[in-house]
Amino acid sequence: MANILISPGKYVQGAGEMKKLGEYAEKYGKKALILITSSGYKRIGNIVEDSFAGKEVSTVFDYFNGECSKTEINRLLKVVEDTGCDMIIGIGGGKILDTAKAVAFHKSVPVLICPTIASTDAPCSALSVIYTDEGVFEEYLFLPANPNLVLMDTEIITKSPVRLTVSGMGDALATYFEARACKNSGAATCAGGLATSAAMSLAELCFNTLMEEGVKAKLALEAGACTPAVEKIIEANTLLSGIGFESGGLAGAHAIHNGLTVLEECHPMYHGEKVAFGTITQLVLENIPGEELEDIITWCIELGLPVTLKELGVKEVTDEKIMAVAAAACADTDTLHNMPFEVNPETVSAAIKAADAYGHYYLGK
C-alpha cells in the first residue's frame, strides 16, 4: 500500500481575509452559490457581498437548513441546477462546510470553504459526514478531492463563542492518537493509503500545539483578543488536524463520537466535545500510562471539555445506554476497527465506563 498525503489546494489564514473572498472566487468560476445560515448572513453578509463588488462573479445566497443530510444535499443540487451556479462557497460551521463539499462533488464544480468558527477539522478535508435529518450519524462520504480553497478570517473567528473554538480543540485532540493507532495497525487512512511521515509530524505538532497553547488561547478569546496563541490554535484545529486526521487516519475517538449520536441526550453537545470524550475512551482502551492519561483529562477539564457522560448530557447513565453507544461505535463500517487490536462492544463498553469514572475522579465529584 502506498503512502499518501492529501490537502486543500490553498489555505489562507489571517484577519480580514473574508473581505477578499470575491477576489479569490474570481479564479474558480462566474456564478457562486453561497451557502450560509440566516444568522450568519445577518452577522457578515455585508462583508461577503461587498467582497464581490466590482468582481466578475455573481452570487446566489441560500440559507442552510441545519443538517448535512441527503435531503438537504438534494435540495441544494436542485438550486444549483435552477440557477446555473458553477462554484459552491460554504460559509459557517462544520455541517455547512460538509454540505457545500458534497454538493460541489455531485455537480463536479469547485468549492471554497470559509469557516466562521474553528470548531472542527472538517474544513480542509475531502470528506463529508452525512447525518439523518434527525442528526444521527449515517455515513462518511469520501470525496475525490479536497476543497480548492480554505479561507480562515481570524477576525471573524475570534468573535465567535469561545466554546466553539474549545470544541475544535477537543476534535483536534484526537488527531495524533488516532493517527498513531492507524500507523501501528497498518490501517489505511482517509486518503486511501498509509500515513506519510509528513502527516504524522503534522498530527504530532497538532497535539503539542494544543498542549502548549490551548489554555492561553482560551483565556485570550474570553478577553476578546486575537493573540499568537489564538492564531496557532486556529491553525491546529483546522489545518494541522485536518491534514493529520485525513492523511493520518481515524480510529477509536471518532467511532465513539459516532456511537454517542445514538443517545438523543448528547445531540446538543458539539462534535469536538464528544470527540474529546471519545479520545479519553480510546486511550483507556490502549491502557496508556496513568500520568499521560491524567495530563490529558486535566487539560480537558481546564478547557471545559466534557470528561464524563453526565457532562455530555446523559442524565441517567445505564448499562443499556453505554452498550448502545459501544455497539454503534463497533459497527463494521466505522473506524474503531483501525485500532491495533481487536475491539468488540463489551471491551468498548468497559472503556466508556472507565473513562467516565476517571473523569469523575479528576473532577473530584
Rank of each mutant, 00 (worst) to 15 (best):
A236C: 05
C206I: 04
A236K: 00
I88N: 09
E235G: 00
Y358E: 12
Y361S: 14
E212A: 12
T298K: 14
E273S: 03
A126S: 15
G186D: 14
R163Q: 14
Y11I: 12
P110Q: 13
R180P: 04
G313R: 00
V325C: 06
E273P: 01
G192S: 05
K353G: 08
N237D: 13
E17H: 04
A122V: 14
V230T: 10
L240I: 02
Y270W: 02
E26L: 04
D133H: 06
E246A: 10
C85W: 07
I36Y: 02
L97A: 06
C85D: 10
F64S: 03
S125F: 05
S69G: 13
E17M: 06
A2W: 00
L33M: 14
P345N: 07
E235A: 02
S128E: 09
M18P: 00
M211S: 11
V215M: 01
M87F: 09
V325F: 01
E320Y: 00
G364L: 03
L250P: 11
E311D: 14
E178C: 14
G248E: 10
T238R: 03
M339N: 13
G272T: 07
E346T: 12
N287C: 07
R180Q: 15
P147I: 10
G186P: 14
F142C: 13
V111T: 12
K274C: 08
N208D: 13
E204G: 01
G244I: 07
G359N: 00
E134P: 02
V12C: 03
C206A: 00
G304H: 03
A126V: 11
E294Q: 14
Q13Y: 00
G135S: 08
A276L: 05
V79F: 07
M1F: 01
S119P: 09
P144H: 08
T59G: 02
L202V: 08
T261W: 02
G45W: 04
I4K: 04
V57I: 09
S7T: 13
K183Q: 15
N287Y: 01
A181G: 13
S51A: 08
T120Y: 08
G94A: 07
D50P: 04
N65L: 13
A118F: 08
Y28V: 11
A118M: 10
Y270A: 03
